[in-house]
Design a protein around this nucleic acid. Structure first.
Lengths: 350, 350
DNA sequence: TCACAGCACTGAACCGTTTAAGTGTCAATA
DNA sequence: TATTGACACTTAAACGGTTCAGTGCTGTGA
């Protein structure tokens, strides 16, 4: 970094500093700083005068100087570690980011984003961000079982909020939605329609919420006296969703309902059913997790588990800002996802 | 910003500074700086010793201090101004970002991301980023006709690369792909299949590339002696894609082929055709712009105009880094998008 | 043998803020 | 009337780097 070329030509008007304001106002830099930051130490008249001059001069604080002085950067970080091919199509992250931004931009805090393709790089990036004080804290997503990032962040002492939980967080604060409750609702709904042979195309095995949903589905099926739910694992891509659906539809007895762990796999599953001549919802009911617009693009429209992902991001950002400001914060629960029934679910044929 | 609470508890080990290294090595801070930055001024033996000590101490440069001193932040900015509902589902931005990151992370440069919902806010954000020196430069996307952001960035003198062009850039450097050539290929292909009544569901009217494609389609149709291409404009969402498709399929004579300006609208169009009992590709051929995995999720799979969006982002980031380093840079052309024919295109029935 | 160039390094200023500590003034209190 | 305290400021250090202008030493050539 900062290779060759010494000081590139920085043209344009020279930056205004609080020194300029001080000179113009005939006071010291300190007084200007107090005035500008709304701190006591200057009379109201002087404060107004300084504020006016700052405005006239078009002054803006240098983020570098401020960061150097007070140890805050005014930037939070987010690292997304997913292979590029699954990243693009899933709307989860964009919605999450847009929620985070809603909170941050209101407070003039920036979001530093990094996309990596393996966890080692992600961990290295946290170390570096913190060592260089590039960010004040991070939002951690895609919590895994025995996630090595958790002890790392604990050890670094880096302010952090985990999206996920309520377990597996160590001492880190988390924000989670009740996936268990949501899968319970889904299984109960399918059972009420008359389904008994339910299958599931789950997400990555290593992810914490996959395990949570696994448990919830199994427990509910058992409670309702249903046979064990046939679960296969995939990587959220359409290809795997299609492949797994083919596998499931080839089993005997064939399931009458499939729960998918994301919308993309569900849509791919619908395409496969179509290709195999299986009618949805007459012969097969389909439920998707995460209700993106994608679910309404296909025919029939998909019944889906819906949650407000942007709100999720918003809340996580708020919590992180509090933590950065020194307010301790525990783990909190967000709204429970709820099922939105659409055309892809119906009673089974027989 | 930087409200209440003075200095939040910053625990953890105190940061190592070049002062610590200097003390340990028995040299001055200046010598350490020269050694660490590979600059002349220290002997090789001393340099090695200093490097070793820095490693042992686990030193990392403070980004704030460096930024304050040399005027560089090591961060580039990207502002995405699209309504949240269209943001999530379109894979364009995630692919673009992932390409940008590929370039940046290799050079230890960060990406500051902002999502806004109107252009005024976007422009305000550029002003502020530059005034506060939060970023060294920005990548501008979604170039519009008579885009007010262009004069703004020119006036600010903020390093910048525009994704889009080759016109409408003012003096800003751009990176563009030959959309005109690509639409030409599409129209020629459809004409070769025998289509004469071609329609188009275009993207936002104000976007520069929409106009470019408009012109390309019109010119090619005229050259080939086809009737005028029936063009309607939409906002890239599935809803509008569906609505526009319904409108087009209700016209008489009904078009035998539709070109969509993005994948989402094309998929929605397919769903509408299905719902209206129009067989694809026998009665209607469909071509999508931007070949995301989405195009292969539906049945039949969509013929699509494909371009390497990640590479696009990568190149833009490289160019911007050069500019920030003081290398002047003109407008450059990236690879031309190419048509990938799949199952959604065929000769018309009659 | 002396002048001088070149090297390796030091010292200090500088970037633009924040903030602790200090100073001078004035009014209220003992 | 002297003491105190509050207020409105100023001064200067600190944050952690980079860089410019020296400084002292060594080796070379005349």
């Amino acid at each position: 970094m900062h290779s060759g070329s010494s000081n590139a030509a920085r043209v344009g008007a020279p930056r205004k500093t609080i020194g300029d304001i001080a000179k113009a106002a005939g006071v010291s830099k300190g007084a200007v700083s107090y005035a500008l930051n709304g701190k006591p130490g200057v009379s109201d008249a002087t404060r107004q005068r300084i504020l006016a001059i700052a405005r006239d001069l078009g002054w803006h604080p240098s983020s570098a100087a401020r960061a150097l002085s007070d140890g805050r950067t005014g930037v939070l970080g987010l690292i997304v570690d997913r292979p590029a091919r699954t990243l693009g199509i899933e709307s989860f992250f964009m919605q999450l980011i847009s929620g985070i931004e809603a909170t941050l931009s209101a407070r003039d805090v920036g979001l530093l984003l990094q996309v990596t393709d393996d966890q080692e790089k992600e961990m290295a990036a946290y170390r570096q961000w913190w060592a260089q004080r590039r960010v004040d804290g991070v939002i951690l997503v895609d919590l895994r079982r025995d996630d090595p990032r958790v002890p790392l962040l604990e050890q670094l002492g880096m302010p952090c909020v985990v999206i996920g939980g309520p377990e597996g967080l160590g001492a880190l604060p988390g924000i989670w939605s009740d996936d268990t409750g949501a899968v319970t609702e889904v299984v109960e709904y399918l059972a009420a329609l008359g389904h008994r042979r339910i299958a599931r195309v789950a997400g990555l095995r290593g992810l914490y919420h996959t395990a949570l949903r696994d448990r919830g589905v199994a427990a509910t099926a058992q409670r309702l006296g249903l046979p064990e739910v046939d679960t296969v694992y995939a990587d959220y891509t359409g290809e795997e969703g299609a492949r797994m659906t083919r596998a499931l539809l080839s089993r005997r007895p064939v399931p009458t309902a499939v729960i998918y762990d994301n919308d993309v796999m569900a849509v791919a599953g619908v395409a496969v059913a179509h290709e195999m001549g299986v009618d949805i919802p007459r012969e097969l009911s389909v439920v998707a997790w995460d209700d993106s617009p994608l679910c309404q693009l296909v025919h029939p429209q998909l019944s889906a588990v819906s949650r407000d992902i942007a709100a999720y991001g918003s809340h996580a950002a708020e919590r992180l800002l509090e933590i950065v400001d020194g307010t301790p914060s525990g783990t909190a629960q967000d709204a429970t996802p709820r099922l939105v029934p659409r055309g892809s679910t119906a009673p089974p044929r027989d």
